[in-house]
């Protein structure tokens, strides 16, 4: 199911207050589940909420048009929502001054490492997946590269 198909058959979206209500309900339930996890294995409310909302959508209990507008609105301003976290670093100015520039350098390098290593690992594993798939289906068709559903990843960027 691609996004385009979803959009074209998308009925009228739910009123914004109803959408907010669904978000609030999911968050409330998540906040009840979150404390059930042990302290050594913390799973915060937003993470549980994300999983819960995803499951509700996947099981078609909540329809996409009931949450799509409000969700997109929230995601569109996430840069702004993060400003207070950025400004909260004002309280770490002492730590930064004490531990010097090394700590900032380590954080920058770590960020790049996590980005690049995860991306390359995934690229390698997906390539492996596609290779295995195509060698399995190679005897059926020589044009699998253009028809294989496993190549869809490349063509679906919208």
């Amino acid at each position: 199911m691609t996004q385009k198909q979803t959009d074209s058959r998308q009925p009228k979206s739910a009123p914004i207050l109803v959408q907010m209500g669904i978000f609030a309900a999911v968050l409330f339930v998540s906040s009840l589940i979150s404390p059930l996890f042990p302290a050594s294995f913390p799973v915060p409310t937003p993470v549980i909420g994300l999983i819960l909302l995803y499951l509700l959508l996947t099981c078609h209990i909540v329809k996409l048009e009931w949450v799509d507008n409000f969700g997109s609105f929230l995601i569109s301003m996430i840069g702004f929502l993060f400003v207070p976290s950025g400004i909260s670093l004002a309280t770490s100015l002492d730590t930064m001054a004490k531990s010097g520039i090394q700590i900032i350098i380590v954080i920058i390098i770590s960020t790049v490492l996590m980005l690049v290593i995860t991306a390359y690992t995934a690229r390698f594993l997906i390539l492996l997946h596609n290779k295995l798939q195509s060698s399995r289906s190679a005897h059926q068709s020589t044009t699998f590269k253009h028809h294989s559903p496993f190549k869809k990843e490349v063509s679906n960027n919208d």
Binding site: M1, S30, P46, G49, F70, G71, L74, I75, L81
Partner: peptide, 24 residues
């Protein structure tokens, strides 16, 4: 700041929507 920050919680669960859209 905390009021603005709080909205990160619903914004995080909103990422279930793009995830669901590419369930394939």
């Amino acid at each position: 700041g905390d009021i603005v920050f709080w909205f990160l919680t619903p914004a995080t669960i909103a990422f279930a929507i793009p995830l669901y859209k590419r369930n394939d």
